[in-house]
Design a binder for these strands. Structure first.
Lengths: 194, 194
DNA sequence: GACAGAATAGAACGATCGTTCGTACAATAC
DNA sequence: GTATTGTACGAACGATCGTTCTATTCTGTC
């Protein structure tokens, strides 16, 4: 990896952190460069525009989500175990102060503003839904879940629980957020179990 | 109502609209004043600071939510009908282009930033949860729901469904978002029905 | 070790940010 | 009708925004 790519990674690393705290629009080239000890123009040259910086930050966040939540879940056996692993990994991600916020935050920042940022997010969320739906189908095939299960509905339900957890945990600071999310999750599983 | 209060209302009205599109931080005194045909300083004088403007915009949004979603639901009979009314009003609110976004958006903008904005949001969300929990308790008393229902869990579940709807509808533009949310809602009700 | 290209710094641009100030007009009180 | 108060404006402030230059330093190649 050349020197350029190396610092670019360092930049994105810090940028994800800032964007998770202040949102993607709150991420500023000035503060980002000064926190990294770089010059504004030096940092800017890596991306060419703020839009491109935002796009790359988003892509980095999406990649990390895949690496942290999705991929480890694939190590668990198909069916219910994999779905449980996915859920727990996801809760942990959502709780991480440096990253949990960025995708949810960006999704509300850009859901009404067309552009590449929105496109990346929409694709990432649709992919995630598709992954959950597929995991549900595999659970049906494995005999863990009822065969009349609607995979898309299952994906929606699971997504909603994690969003609810995020809100209860981060905004309301509800100490029972984890218990409530798991309660909801167990009811979901109980309903679909074969 | 004096002239001052009148323009202040006009300002907040437009401000809620802008904040719903661009977020509370994206709401700018310059654009807000120019969209209203006012001078920056004239508008500014009504609030004294951007923080205070944000606080009043948030409070206005919370009040409108109460007026649009909560109060009409209270007109429905206690128990299941009231809960159904609440749910449908809430979905409609979430879909309104001018307002549905502002509370959800602001909650992710400020969930990691202490201050009066966060306080207002956290209180509003906790109050809403408490209202849902109480509605669930009334449904138990009315004999519509099982007596072993956990009101707090019910409130979490309902909250999560609407958040999931919001995300599926606004970001993913999933045309089935309404069906999915209602499917989830019916499963919730079926589970708790006496 | 000279050289080409990439990587970074520095200064400056116009625009816009939130905010302050002094002033002018409008409404209200006496 | 005058005095007082409330309401809005215009100009300007310093700070910061994203961006564009030019110049300098560093990196890797023959």
């Amino acid at each position: 990896m050349g020197k350029g790519a190396e610092t670019r990674e360092r930049i994105l690393d810090q940028a994800v952190r800032i964007a998770s705290r202040d949102g993607l629009e709150g991420l500023t080239i000035g503060t980002l460069s000064s926190e990294l000890g770089l010059s504004k123009s030096g940092l800017f040259a890596h991306f060419g525009s703020k839009d491109e910086l935002q796009v790359q930050v988003l892509q980095a966040a999406v990649d990390r989500f895949t690496e942290t939540v999705i991929r480890p879940a694939l190590a668990a056996p198909r069916g219910e175990p994999r779905i449980r692993a996915l859920f727990e990994n996801w809760l942990a991600w959502s709780n991480a102060p440096d990253m949990g916020c960025i995708l949810v935050g960006a999704s509300t920042e850009f859901d009404d503003r067309p552009g590449p940022q929105r496109d990346i997010l929409a694709k990432a969320f649709r992919d995630r839904s598709a992954f959950m739906a597929k995991a549900a189908r595999l659970a049906v095939e494995a005999g863990h879940f009822r065969s009349d299960l609607d995979p898309e509905q299952f994906a929606f339900d699971l997504d909603a629980i994690v969003l609810g957890y995020h809100n209860a945990q981060r905004l309301m600071r509800n100490p029972k957020a984890g218990d409530l999310a798991r309660g909801s999750f167990e009811r979901l599983l109980a309903f679909y179990k074969a």
